[in-house]
Amino acid sequence: MSNYKIHTATELWQKETCLPSIPTFSQNLDHILGNGGVQLGSLTEVLGLPGTGKTQLCLQLCASVQIPKVLSGLNAEALYIDTNTNFTPTRFKEILTASLLKCQKIEPSYLFNEEEALDRLHYINAFGIEKFCACMNRISVFVAEHPRVKLIVIDSITFPFKEGISVQKRTGLLFRQMADLQRIAMEGLVAVVLVNEMSTRLGLSGGAVVGSLGDAWAHRCNKRLLLSNPSELGGSRLALLLKSNNAPNLVAKFQITREGIRDS
């Protein structure tokens, strides 16, 4: 049963530094995330109030994962697990086409077929806790069958757990799923992005509006990105890296255009 491996930090450093990242198409955002985007093998949580651009960011990442090899992209596929009907195919098509056209502009020899590009997104709608758990159980098989999937998005992680489960059971279940997911992410070198909602906890020190799922969950995630759209900035939005194991807590400004996520 000795299935653990012991690595030295030098080995891990070599591995970490040559792992590619999925760019967000906003240099500011890429900069604060610390690795030039969402790094493969990592787990990132995106937080924010409704309408702050969480789903938009996920759609952009699903498009970015397709950047061709000539532009040192991943040329890979994405898996989108939708638990709350957040995904809109027309909007995704818009962002995907815009992103790939941008690639073509930089590298004219790159040709793409819109339909083929759309085929490279795998979509699962997992409504309700039973479907969600079943889907999480199958993820390892799915990733093994689809080795080109390099990004898994769960939008949102909170929604399946809204009702029908006690808080203790929820935490236990989530921690088990996270351990499995992280093992898959690290072994298969897949990036995982989780969308979380915000909730209100009255009387809490350090602000009453916090991410859902409690303090235990906050401890489990090692990269947390908070999005907001303050009205005084007009159309621009802000992203704050709330927590990270290797980058300082910085703020970045970005905007959401018709083409997707861009610098503002």
């Binding site: 030295t8 030098t10 450093w13 290797n246």
Partner: peptide, 30 residues
């Protein structure tokens, strides 16, 4: 994060050789 460790040591002005030696003495198990 091995990268974070390397950055900390680099900031403290250790040579590449020293950094490698220190990092080889930190073992990690997932």
């Amino acid at each position: 994060s091995a990268l974070r460790i390397q950055k900390i040591l680099e900031k403290c002005q250790y040579s590449f050789k020293e950094v490698a030696a220190i990092m080889s003495r930190i073992h990690i198990s997932y």
